[in-house]
Design a protein around this nucleic acid. Sequence first.
DNA 1: GCCGAAACTGAGCAGGATGCCCTATTCGGC
DNA 2: GCCGAATAGGGCATCCTGCTCAGTTTCGGC
Lengths: 171, 171
Amino acid sequence: MPYSAVRYRANLRIMHPVDATDTRILRALAVDPRRTVVALAQELGLSRNTVQARLSRLEQHAFLAFDRRINPASLGYPLLAFITVHVQQRKLGPITEAIAQIPEVLEGHGLTGTADLLLRVVAVDAEDLFRINGKILACDGVERTDTALAMGELVPFRMDPLLERGPRPAG
Amino acid sequence: MPYSAVRYRANLRIMHPVDATDTRILRALAVDPRRTVVALAQELGLSRNTVQARLSRLEQHAFLAFDRRINPASLGYPLLAFITVHVQQRKLGPITEAIAQIPEVLEGHGLTGTADLLLRVVAVDAEDLFRINGKILACDGVERTDTALAMGELVPFRMDPLLERGPRPAG
DNA sequence: GCCGAAACTGAGCAGGATGCCCTATTCGGC
DNA sequence: GCCGAATAGGGCATCCTGCTCAGTTTCGGC
């Protein structure tokens, strides 16, 4: 059974609609760790060709980058924090660029509501987190930050419930 | 070149320290999408055996579940929102369980600070999000929710900067 | 400086998966 | 009822995987 860490830089904008068969494939993948195309085909009662074609499509359009599967804790960053950032809105562009320079910021979202940015940040320890927060505050245009330390993953990441339910009619 | 959607239910608690060589492997994986063990070994100047052994270890200890690579948008959930939840703290357990029943909640973290919970939620559309928010509010013990819609992924998820930097001494 | 454990290398082997081709057939929408 | 897309089925050369074993190197502790 082959190993291969699939990682396609899927563009978030392009969202390829996934049909029922794709969903079955995804579910099968989700249930069991490493599967060969042949095994999948057998299990789903499809021809190997079909599965292979659909997997190619999924890889190109429906899979996110491989990064997401790397556990930051393994890299030595056991602390996870969510930092809310209030900024001068017209400086949002430069601020985003500046924040993107900080390695510990894993992802950042622009938000509606009172806060402007939500950052997912990892850190080596509390002191490290303090330092990172300082770097964010130092960015020109940042007015305030609120740091919330993640104490526990109360609902561990999962996609299964959505897969179980099957694909939505995309609207 | 084989395909295989690697997915090990890595326990978040167990964080296997990743050394420099592991990091090189991860970086190689991150740079290029699908790689065979042979290709990795060649590229890194290691023996196939070594790479294979390290990959097994990484799969078991440093990789998160495969779910994370699935783009919710492809499943028909293009909307992403972060919902902050204030709860009666002593009911946190039951609340967590109740919230975990909601499929659209992809992950939930317990937080320090004013808010108690931060949920990552996907939805089909605004109306759907409203409905989901209602389900959360309906959980016994939930006092208030704040929904922030993610307008854009200003800093797209990435781990590369941390990988570039190499492993931290885990403390 | 020495010892032992852990990691790495190199080799080999059987099984089988991949990637790709082609064609006939089925299915669904128009 | 027709057309196009998706699928099944078969085939083939390549070469990857998983596993084992022994010998060598590296590294850390004493």
